[in-house]
Computed example of a mutant assay.
Amino acid sequence: MECKYFEKLKDYNYGDLLAETDYWIILLAPDQRNLGTCVIALKRFEGDLSELKDEEWLEFSKIVKKLEYALKKAFNSTMFNWGCLMNSSYRKDPPDPHVHWHMIPRYKEKTEFKGLIFEDPCFGSSTMKTKGGIRKVAEDVRIKIIKEIKDNFEI
């Protein structure tokens, strides 16, 4: 899938393209500590969540339902954390915030995918203070994760 907005968003390093809707792009996040972690980025450049239009909120709600379903079906996720965290945008001078959401699947049990084990040691708590940096997976595994999500994501 070719996304004309994806090139503009590469500087934000949100991840690999999964899908595109009228107002959002859905990407597999670079950090895969929690299998299937995604970023959902607004296509237009907006710095404030309060400035989202009604139609953007409506479409976002549909993405939430369909993406959660896809991750439960693909990887047996237990639950999901959603966050709109734009803190790193303010490390730049001048700040460059862009509305986007982090969708972090949470797993009560260890999860195996393509020979890799994914654990969620702070299940039931916030992942905000998880130490250990990000978990990148090999490109061939990322491709398989993307395929698994797409096979279950009807957008």
Rank of each mutant, 00 (worst) to 15 (best):
M1T: 07
E2V: 11
Y5V: 07
E7L: 08
E7Y: 13
E7C: 01
L9P: 00
L17D: 06
L17F: 08
L18C: 09
D22H: 05
I26W: 02
L28S: 10
A29V: 03
P30C: 00
Q32Y: 03
R33Q: 15
R33M: 01
N34H: 10
L35K: 12
L35V: 04
G36V: 06
T37H: 13
C38F: 00
R44T: 09
R44Q: 03
F45V: 09
F45S: 11
G47D: 02
G47W: 10
L49Y: 03
S50I: 03
E51Y: 12
E51T: 13
L52I: 05
D54L: 04
E55M: 07
F60G: 12
F60H: 13
S61G: 09
K62Y: 09
I63G: 04
V64R: 10
V64N: 07
V64D: 05
K66V: 08
L67W: 00
E68H: 06
A74R: 08
F75S: 05
N76P: 00
T78C: 09
M79D: 15
C84H: 02
N87Y: 08
K92G: 01
P94T: 09
P97T: 02
W101Y: 14
M103H: 02
M103P: 02
R106S: 09
E112S: 11
K114C: 02
S125P: 02
T127L: 10
M128C: 06
K129A: 09
K131G: 05
K131P: 01
G132I: 10
G132Y: 07
G132K: 08
G133P: 03
R135S: 06
K136A: 10
V137W: 04
E139P: 00
D140L: 09
V141H: 10
R142Y: 06
I143M: 13
K144F: 02
K147V: 10
N152P: 08
F153T: 15
